[in-house]
Deep mutational scan, measured.
Amino acid sequence: SEEEIREAFRVFDKDGNGYISAADLRHVMTNLGEKLTDEEVDEMIREADIDGDGQVNYEDFVQMMTA
């Protein structure tokens, strides 16, 4: 549901600035027990970053979650 997606976005957007940065993503993945290299984190950001601004905004996140 849209509310679940919004809630998930809030979990990833640690600093609440409306964007998921590589640092935000790394933090959440580490908490989930996933040890990722910087390259892996950057690749995840690139794949999710639809508009190419280097971070994942809510619209990018929705597209990723509903793809």
Rank of each mutant, 00 (worst) to 15 (best):
R26H: 13
A8S: 05
I45A: 03
E3C: 12
S1I: 07
A8M: 09
T37D: 04
R6V: 04
F12Y: 12
I45N: 02
N17M: 07
T66C: 10
K35R: 11
V11E: 11
N31S: 15
I50D: 04
M29D: 00
K35C: 12
L25F: 14
Y58G: 00
N17A: 06
D53C: 08
V28L: 08
Q55E: 06
V62L: 15
A23C: 09
G18W: 02
F9C: 10
T30Y: 11
V11D: 03
N57S: 11
D24T: 06
E47C: 14
D51V: 09
L36H: 06
A23D: 13
G33S: 14
I45H: 02
S21W: 06
E43K: 15
K14V: 12
T66Q: 08
D15N: 11
Q63Y: 09
G54N: 06
L36V: 05
E40D: 07
K14D: 05
V11R: 13
R10F: 04
I20Y: 00
I45E: 01
D38L: 14
D53Q: 10
E39R: 11
G16I: 02
T37K: 06
D60A: 15
A23L: 09
K14P: 08
E43R: 15
I20N: 00
E34S: 15
V41R: 05
L25K: 00
N57H: 09
N17K: 09
L25D: 01
V41C: 04
Q55D: 04
N57I: 06
V56A: 03
M65P: 01
A8I: 05
G16R: 06
V11L: 11
Y19M: 12
D38C: 08
D53M: 13
E3Y: 10
K35Q: 10
D53S: 13
S21N: 07
R10G: 04
S1V: 11
E43W: 13
L32N: 02
E40G: 03
E34Y: 11
L25A: 15
E59R: 05
D15I: 06
E43T: 11
D38V: 12
M29S: 01
V41M: 10
D49P: 07
N31E: 09
A48Y: 07
Q63R: 14
Y19E: 03
E34T: 15
L25G: 02
V11M: 11
M44W: 12
K14Q: 07
D38G: 08
V56K: 00
E40L: 06
M64D: 02
F9V: 02
E3K: 11
M29K: 01
R46Y: 05
T37I: 04
N17P: 00
G18Q: 01
R46F: 05
V28W: 04
T37R: 06
T30D: 07
Y19R: 13
Y58K: 01
D15F: 08
S1D: 07
E2P: 13
V56M: 05
D49T: 12
F61L: 09
S1R: 14
V56Y: 12
A22Y: 12
E4Y: 13
G16W: 03
I20E: 01
T37G: 05
V56E: 00
D24G: 03
Q55L: 13
D38K: 14
G18Y: 02
N31A: 14
G33F: 15
Q63V: 09
S21M: 07
Y19I: 06
E43N: 15
E39I: 12
T37N: 05
A22N: 06
N17W: 04
E47F: 15
F12W: 07
Q63P: 03
E40H: 06
I5D: 00
E2H: 09
D24N: 06
M44L: 10
D13H: 01
T30G: 09
V62R: 03
M44P: 00
E3P: 04
D24Q: 05
V62T: 03
I20P: 00
S1K: 13
E40Q: 14
E47P: 03
A8F: 06
E43V: 09
V28S: 01
A22K: 13
E4C: 13
L25V: 13
I5T: 02
A22T: 13
I5E: 00
E39P: 05
N17S: 11
E2K: 12
A8C: 06
L32R: 04
R26A: 10
G52Q: 11
D13P: 00
E43F: 12
A23M: 09
A67Q: 12
A8E: 03
G18T: 02
T66E: 04
A8T: 03
M65R: 02
Q55F: 14
M64A: 06
R10I: 04
F61G: 00
D51I: 09
F9G: 00
D24P: 01
I45R: 03
T30A: 13
R10L: 06
S21A: 09
T37A: 05
M65V: 08
G16Y: 04
R26P: 06
E2D: 08
S1W: 15
Q55N: 13
A23Q: 11
D15E: 11
D51A: 10
N31P: 01
K35P: 12
V62F: 06
Q63W: 07
K35H: 13
D53R: 09
D53W: 09
G16F: 04
E40W: 11
A8R: 06
E59T: 04
H27V: 12
V28F: 03
I45M: 12
I5P: 00
D49A: 13
L32W: 10
M65C: 04
N57K: 14
I45K: 02
M65Q: 03
R10Q: 07
K14C: 07
M65N: 02
E40N: 04
I20R: 00
N57F: 15
L25S: 02
E59M: 08
H27S: 07
N57G: 07
A67G: 07
M64Q: 06
V41W: 08
R46E: 04
M29P: 00
F9T: 00
Q63S: 09
L25C: 05
E59G: 05
D49I: 12
I45G: 01
E39M: 10
M44T: 02
T30W: 10
H27K: 11
R10H: 04
D53L: 08
G33E: 05
F12P: 00
G54K: 03
V56W: 03
I20L: 03
F61N: 00
S1C: 13
A8G: 03
G54R: 05
E3S: 10
E2F: 14
D51Y: 12
D42L: 11
N57A: 13
E40C: 10
G52M: 13
N57T: 07
F12L: 05
D60K: 15
T30V: 11
V11S: 10
D13G: 01
M65K: 02
D42M: 08
L32H: 05
I5H: 02
E39S: 07
F9W: 05
A67Y: 01
N57W: 14
D51L: 09
S1Q: 07
S21E: 04
R10E: 03
D49V: 13
G16V: 02
D51N: 14
M29Y: 05
I50K: 14
G18H: 02
R6N: 02
A8N: 03
E7S: 07
V62D: 00
Y19L: 11
L36G: 02
M64H: 07
F61W: 05
V62W: 07
D13K: 00
R26V: 14
A48F: 08
E4G: 08
R6A: 03
I45C: 04
A8L: 11
L32D: 01
S21I: 04
F12C: 04
G33A: 11
E34R: 15
D51Q: 10
T37E: 02
E43Y: 13
N17Y: 06
S21Y: 05
G33I: 10
T66R: 09
D13Y: 01
R46W: 04
G54W: 04
E7K: 12
A67E: 06
F61V: 14
R10S: 05
L32S: 03
T66D: 03
E39L: 10
M44K: 04
I45L: 11
G16S: 07
Q55M: 14
D24R: 01
E7Q: 10
V11F: 11
D38T: 09
E4N: 09
I20M: 04
V41I: 14
D49Q: 14
N17R: 08
D15Q: 11
E59N: 10
V62A: 03
E4V: 09
M64S: 03
L36N: 03
Y19N: 03
R6F: 04
G33K: 15
V56N: 00
E3F: 10
E7A: 13
M44R: 05
V62G: 00
A48K: 06
E43G: 10
R46T: 05
G16A: 06
D53F: 10
R6I: 06
I50G: 08
A67M: 03
E7R: 07
V11T: 08
E39H: 12
I45V: 05
D15R: 05
N17D: 06
D53G: 07
V62K: 03
R46I: 05
S21R: 05
I20F: 02
E40P: 02
D60R: 15
M64W: 07
I20D: 00
A67W: 01
D60E: 12
E3M: 10
L32P: 00
L32M: 07
Y19D: 01
Q63T: 13
A23F: 05
Q63K: 14
M65Y: 05
K14G: 04
E59C: 06
E43H: 12
K35N: 11
M29W: 05
G18I: 01
A48W: 08
G52R: 13
G18V: 00
D24L: 05
A23Y: 07
G18A: 01
E40T: 06
V11K: 14
T66L: 14
I5Y: 12
E3A: 12
N31G: 11
D42F: 08
G33D: 10
D60C: 14
E39V: 09
